[in-house]
């Protein structure tokens, strides 16, 4: 049996020709995947060089003129782009906080349900919207927030509003609507992982707490929350990098001319100027900046988690 164990030292010394021959199929397959990965994932990274050039399709990466930081300077002196960074980060943070808080809250409330059948039913319903496309979801959101839509109808019937509001012609409603759309679509789905973590908490902890006379709220506060802590931190680190990626589709599909000043994000900018106006270098520069910010955020939060002694990603 020990012969089959790859970590046995005797075998490790013999990882030579015989082993390579034995694994030749695996090695060939692995090589194919490396070639594929280089072409479709690593080669586009070389494309970042375009951000430092005035790229033309004819010249390619090796024949285009080098311009240094010209495009980055252009971006950061452009008021539009600075506002776009603000929009991207603001919506990213609002969405991250809103979806995390609602997912954790929903998972805790659902975990308190003792009826297994009811619990399953609610959970199944809860993540249905995750599988609908953003096209369909934004279409529903448009309908719901229109002047004849259900939100206005509800608010007027509850006497919160006297007359319906045209939500999509006032800039102050756009960020909340984007957050609500994200919460509606993703709460149930994001809760799955928290719910699985709560289920994995040792039940004897709750029993012991009950013996000591702990109430429901005390059990949630002293057992459920600490049990969720490491999952929350890991997911936050994983998602913090997306704060600057968050939202291309929603904003693109929900935005309109009146809302441009609050709805445009970096990706929309890349699409508009980079792809639409064929200014590939400008678009790439904006994309490189985005990746830089997201990497910085991931490393920063990972570092903080390390310092505070919490679970971390790497």
């Amino acid at each position: 049996m020990s012969l089959m164990n790859p970590s046995a030292p005797a075998l490790k010394e013999k990882t030579t020709k015989a082993e390579i021959k034995r694994q030749s199929v695996l090695l060939i397959i692995a090589a194919l995947y490396v070639v594929y990965g280089i072409i479709f994932y690593y080669l586009p990274l070389v494309g970042w060089l375009m951000a430092f050039q005035t790229y033309t399709l004819k010249g390619g990466i090796f024949g285009s003129e080098w311009v240094g930081l010209k495009w980055f300077k252009f971006l950061f002196t452009d008021d539009t782009f600075v506002r776009i960074i603000r929009n991207t980060l603001a919506m990213g943070v609002i969405n991250l906080v809103a979806t995390t808080v609602t997912a954790i809250g929903f998972a805790i409330l659902l975990s308190e349900v003792k009826n297994i059948w009811g619990k399953k039913l609610v959970q199944t319903i809860s993540y249905l919207p995750h599988f609908l496309s953003w096209i369909v979801v934004t279409s529903i959101v448009h309908e719901a927030f229109s002047t004849e839509g259900m939100i206005n109808e509800l608010l007027v019937n509850l006497h919160i509003l006297k007359t319906p509001i045209s939500f999509f012609s006032h800039t102050q409603y756009f960020w909340p609507i984007v957050a609500i759309s994200n919460v509606w679509k993703e709460t149930g789905w994001n809760a799955i992982i928290y719910l699985a973590t709560i289920t994995s908490i040792d039940p004897s902890l709750y029993e012991a707490a009950a013996m000591d006379g702990a109430g429901r709220w005390q059990k949630i506060k002293h057992i459920t929350f600490p049990g969720l802590r490491s999952t929350i931190i890991i997911l936050l680190i994983m998602n913090i990098g997306n704060v600057i990626n968050a939202g291309f589709e929603v904003q693109y599909l929900l935005g309109n001319g009146l809302l441009q000043s609050v709805s445009q994000t970096i990706d929309i900018y890349v699409l508009k100027y980079g792809v639409g106006k064929m200014n590939y270098s400008l678009g790439t520069a904006a994309g490189v900046f985005k990746t830089f910010v997201s990497m910085t955020l991931i490393f920063l939060f990972n570092f903080i988690a390390k310092k505070t002694g919490d679970e971390r990603l790497f």
Binding site: A30, G37, Y41, P44, G47, G241, V270, T291
Partner: peptide, 27 residues
């Protein structure tokens, strides 16, 4: 498998670093 961890690492990197919309389009 001899290159087990290096092949895994090679692919995990692709989850975090991506070229972006325009380099992808050019490719």
């Amino acid at each position: 498998f001899l290159f087990r961890s290096s092949l895994s690492f090679f692919w995990v990197v692709t989850m975090y670093a991506s070229g972006g919309m325009i380099p992808g389009l050019i490719l």
